[in-house]
Amino acid sequence: MDNYPLLNIFWTMLELFLWILWFFLLFKIITDIFRSHDMGGWAKAGWLLLVILVPLIGVLVYVIARGRSMGERDVEQAQRADAAFKAYIRDAAGAAPGEGPGEGPGGRSHVDDLAKLADLKSSGAISEEEYQKAKEKLLV
């Protein structure tokens, strides 16, 4: 341990952390290149070659040139995932979107729907907030 002082350990940890960050950024950019719908195949191939062959310059140029649209694509993907999750919750709860008061689909009462919601909440599939929103939607 005398040959490797404490400061060298901290320096090695910092270098490891920076390498992990670098690879995370590199893979994030490569996935964004393939996810981008506003670029053609040749543009994607050019960006990919630039990022792979000259990584430091390629990544910096990509972040400068397309950083804003990269963030917008992340937000759109999160919104799509959220909408899919909410549709799944509605499906699992048995309530169709826009369904009014009274009986549910197939002649079920809202008591059955509330019981399913309670089961989803107790199993941890939905949060307390989602449970309250779905319950209010059923009872209105």
Score class of each variant (00 low, 15 high):
81 A>D: 06
64 I>F: 14
28 K>C: 10
44 K>T: 00
126 I>D: 01
59 V>E: 05
65 A>S: 09
40 G>Q: 00
117 L>N: 06
96 A>D: 08
20 I>M: 09
39 M>A: 02
6 L>W: 07
11 W>D: 12
116 K>A: 13
55 P>T: 12
67 G>R: 06
54 V>F: 15
38 D>V: 04
129 E>C: 03
93 A>Q: 01
47 W>H: 07
68 R>K: 14
139 L>M: 15
80 R>N: 02
22 W>T: 09
72 E>M: 01
8 N>I: 05
114 L>N: 04
115 A>S: 10
101 P>C: 04
6 L>I: 13
10 F>A: 13
79 Q>W: 04
38 D>Q: 07
76 E>V: 07
18 L>T: 06
131 Y>T: 04
81 A>G: 01
53 L>Y: 12
51 V>P: 05
31 T>N: 14
140 V>T: 14
132 Q>I: 03
133 K>N: 04
79 Q>T: 06
84 A>N: 08
78 A>I: 02
127 S>T: 15
17 F>L: 13
2 D>Q: 13
126 I>P: 02
14 L>M: 09
49 L>F: 13
77 Q>I: 02
47 W>I: 04
9 I>W: 09
34 F>G: 05
68 R>C: 02
65 A>F: 04
12 T>P: 00
49 L>H: 02
113 D>H: 15
84 A>S: 10
106 G>N: 14
44 K>C: 00
128 E>I: 07
113 D>R: 15
116 K>L: 13
111 V>R: 10
81 A>L: 06
2 D>F: 13
87 A>E: 12
134 A>W: 02
115 A>G: 05
100 G>T: 07
60 L>P: 01
79 Q>N: 12
44 K>V: 00
85 F>T: 01
55 P>R: 09
138 L>T: 11
10 F>G: 13
125 A>K: 11
47 W>P: 01
86 K>V: 04
118 A>M: 10
87 A>M: 09
107 G>L: 09
22 W>Q: 08
